[in-house]
Design a protein around this nucleic acid. Structure first.
Lengths: 150, 150
DNA sequence: AACAATTAAGTTGTGCACAATTTAAATTAT
DNA sequence: ATAATTTAAATTGTGCACAACTTAATTGTT
């Protein structure tokens, strides 16, 4: 495998810029929903699985409490979610959608369609790309496993 | 194309987490070099093209002065680079490697090898993935072009 | 030449992202 | 049952990332 220090040859750099640029694409789409991209990800999880606790939320998004705590605080200020302690385990904080948060879902349903329209991508390519990204993540996890073993 | 609000179906989410996790992989590798990932990217550009001005640097990395100015300031504090005004155009700030910054290159040459070793990826797959990421970025740029046209 | 428009950096403010630490609740071990 | 350990959130501190604005140098226009 060719190994140079050339910026453009590094897969990490390509991932980093692709991710940033795709996120930039979301900004104007999410602006009318009054959401940042990270807040949108949290809402996606809640629309799927309302009443999840912070730790689970963090697992889904690979974010820790240092990121999520203030982020959820902002979502509460906007009025999309509310939080409360779990009755069975007082350590856990449960996040729940408000009526406004639930209603927002209707406005958000066509966000993915808008994005793929902008990307101008056909389904087969889309699927192939998703598989590739999943594969990269698997390789990363595999490495993590190997590390933990020894 | 199937359109849902499911988190895992969104290419943007996969890109976002893949990028974060790959960056996490770099952290322990870059720590002995005393560099963050973003600082490493700046150093990569400078090892390729020393004496570049801030604007060009920003173009390469898709970063604006709001990110680069303080970042370069930190690299100066560490002692890897220095900056000066361009003689032909006093608006431009030129960033140059110090001796320490140049010497660091020797330590950094095997970073890519370490990373691809961790990823455990063969060259063909690597190339295919690079092409995919380049393609995504092209689609994003194409959309940007289309927008600007009208 | 004088003025307007553009360009390059820098600054300010907001919001992640994450390491490290703290606090409190729940488990486990003794 | 009590002490030790583990777990869940929150907090603190650092460093991006970017929008919006400011300042100064350059270029374009008349």
């Amino acid at each position: 495998m060719e190994q140079t220090l050339k910026l453009e040859h590094q897969i990490c750099f390509q991932l980093y810029t692709a991710s940033k640029e795709l996120t930039r694409l979301y900004r104007p789409i999410l602006e009318p929903l009054n959401l940042t991209y990270s807040q949108y990800l949290v809402m996606l999880v809640l629309w799927e699985e309302d009443g999840i606790d912070l730790r689970q939320l963090g697992m889904r998004l690979t974010l820790d409490s240092g990121t999520l705590s203030p982020l959820v605080k902002r979502l509460i200020q906007i009025g999309y979610v509310e939080k409360s302690r779990a009755t069975d385990d007082e350590r856990k904080v449960v996040v729940r959608l408000t009526d406004r948060g639930n209603a927002l879902r209707e406005q958000a349903v066509d966000v993915p369609l808008q994005v793929s329209g902008m990307l101008n991508i056909d389904e087969a390519t889309y699927v192939a790309y998703m598989e590739m990204l999943t594969d990269i993540k698997e390789r990363l996890h595999d490495f993590g496993e190997r590390q933990r073993e020894q």
